Amino acid sequence: MINNDYKWYPVYTRSRAEKKAYEELLRKGITAYLPLKKTVKQWSDRKKIVEEPLIKSYLFVYISAREQAEVMMTNGIARFIYFSGHIASLPEQQIEALKLLLATESELEVFEYDLKAGEKVIVKAGPFKGMLAELISIRNKQRIVLRLEQMGFAISINTSVAFIEPLLD
């Protein structure tokens, strides 16, 4: 289904409306892709494996420019994503790479913020939970170096970047 008029576009959905918007797009005959990951949810009486969006409030549509209005008239769709004043599009290879990555069933984490060296952070989990720190470096997603403010030294921690977040002033 390669056609030069058709491109993959990321669209932003209303909060928690990704699956419903995806299903409605398919009902309209629009090719769409909603990357899902499996996670274990814990309730007081049971655990359950559920599929939730890999990237909250995003899905991808494969359309021509003349179908953009139809996508916008879909329940749950909030807007197209813009980059440099134009509607952003993605190469087919990126969508295929994302599908391949999800097919491996490896543990994936998506972060909604971009952490940089020198930023003040707070540790959300683990033995240093609640501590304020300065991010010195990220060696990979599982090894970070923090300067712990209360202790006055830097420490390399084997933990996920998901366990820290920027400190809001």
Score class of each variant (00 low, 15 high):
I49H: 06
V50M: 15
V40N: 12
I81G: 10
A88L: 15
T39N: 14
E92G: 08
L148S: 06
T39K: 14
L34G: 02
E112T: 11
E67C: 00
E112L: 09
I77W: 02
G152K: 08
K120T: 11
I157N: 05
T159E: 10
T159C: 06
E109I: 03
L167I: 08
M1P: 10
S156N: 06
E24P: 01
M1E: 14
P53L: 06
N3Y: 13
L36E: 12
S44Q: 13
V121D: 03
I95E: 11
A103E: 12
M72Q: 13
L25I: 03
W8Y: 00
R143T: 11
L108T: 03
L115I: 05
K116L: 09
V40R: 11
Q93V: 14
I122Q: 09
K28W: 00
P166M: 11
M73A: 12
L115V: 10
K37M: 13
Y9D: 04
F128A: 05
A97I: 03
V145R: 04
G85R: 11
A97V: 07
K7L: 14
L108K: 02
F80T: 02
V11S: 00
L108G: 02
F83E: 14
N3M: 14
K141I: 05
E18N: 07
I49T: 15
A117R: 01
